[in-house]
Design a protein around this nucleic acid. Structure first.
Lengths: 184, 184
DNA sequence: TTCAAATGTCACACAACTGAGAAATTAGCC
DNA sequence: GGCTAATTTCTCAGTTGTGTGACATTTGAA
């Protein structure tokens, strides 16, 4: 059963997302599996992390690309991007965490880095395009908007986890605050 | 020298903020101190965490209270609250993380919880007051605004850590995005 | 039912982290 | 300079996490 593998990956993403150094026992527990089984699928901690990273890259990149392709209107693209990120959930958050951690070195040979950078560039271009068209404010920089974007995603994820905001309002609130926050 | 103690606490907040299970060696290293010295000030990991929690509570509560007292205009109070949170930096983020973690149980006997809840209540009241006055939108709930507030703080902290946004623009951007994002 | 693959249980060796004692070293102060 | 307290260095035992082997148990499909 290959679904066990995915179950472990998903658990690892959840656990490592808020505790990088968490013992593998916790991951196994979250995946409802023995540590021994976890080790059957993944040689060691490092391999598990690598696989998580690749899994995330694949899923996030696809979702983001689909969002961008879903429309010709830049503002709609941006809105769909936000929804896609929210759907990716913890994966999107972890994607950024991986590339923002201290020990991380960007280099071309790493596919994950390439995927991240590509996405990042497309995002920045979209933002600059919107600014040029006067559809969003120029008071804040594209860099800030990018940080703000992931910040709103994280906010929605946390609000969801805390159960403080109704599920169906989540996306609506997120888009309201994000779009207004960049001066749409 | 009692400043060593504070140095360790500050280092612990920084380290534990993005890796709860980080070895104490990392904390000691960040504080430019030996692990042995750390153990002289704090019996064990748990005591260090407890002290961090108290330190954070004290500093954040004071800063927030001062911000609220700095003006009579609700909107100015909110703006000052944001700046205070940004000044508290990682401490503010950790404050929330501590109270949002899984194993955490809210109970009256815990001073930290009380302080957190008090602050939380004052924040929500301020928001509802602004909504009643029609100064901010009603499209989003006070709960969402609270989550959004800490989200913006985290965004600014991250942007600062990544060096992507000029220091002096930080607060300005944060307030712009936050205020617009709640429909000011 | 039967067989094979997947998973669990137990046991082990090893590495890393933790907490503490004792002596050597450093820093501030009179 | 000498004294005192803080800190470092070195040490070590105890605990926890890691990775693996051997074998039992469960599961699912033929």
């Amino acid at each position: 059963m290959q679904e066990t593998r995915q179950k472990i990956i998903d658990a690892a993403i959840l656990i490592f997302n808020d505790d990088q150094s968490a013992p593998l026992e916790k991951v196994a527990e979250k995946a409802a599996v023995t540590r021994r089984t976890l080790h059957r699928y993944f040689k060691d901690r490092h391999e598990l992390l690598t696989v998580c990273s690749k899994d995330i890259r694949k899923r996030c990149s696809e979702a983001m690309a689909a969002a961008l392709d879903s429309s010709d209107r830049p503002l709609t693209q941006l809105e769909q991007l936000l929804y896609a990120a929210l759907d990716c959930g913890a994966k999107y958050a972890f994607f950024h965490k991986l590339h923002g951690s201290e020990g991380h070195q960007h280099h071309g040979g790493n596919d994950d880095c390439t995927a991240y950078d590509t996405m990042h560039q497309r995002f920045l271009r979209l933002i600059m395009q919107l600014q040029d068209a006067g559809m969003i404010t120029r008071h804040v920089t594209p860099s800030w908007i990018h940080a703000f974007f992931t910040g709103v995603v994280n906010t929605a994820l946390k609000a969801d986890a805390m159960g403080e905001v109704a599920k169906q309002s989540q996306k609506q609130f997120a888009w309201f605050s994000f779009s207004k926050g960049i001066g749409v």
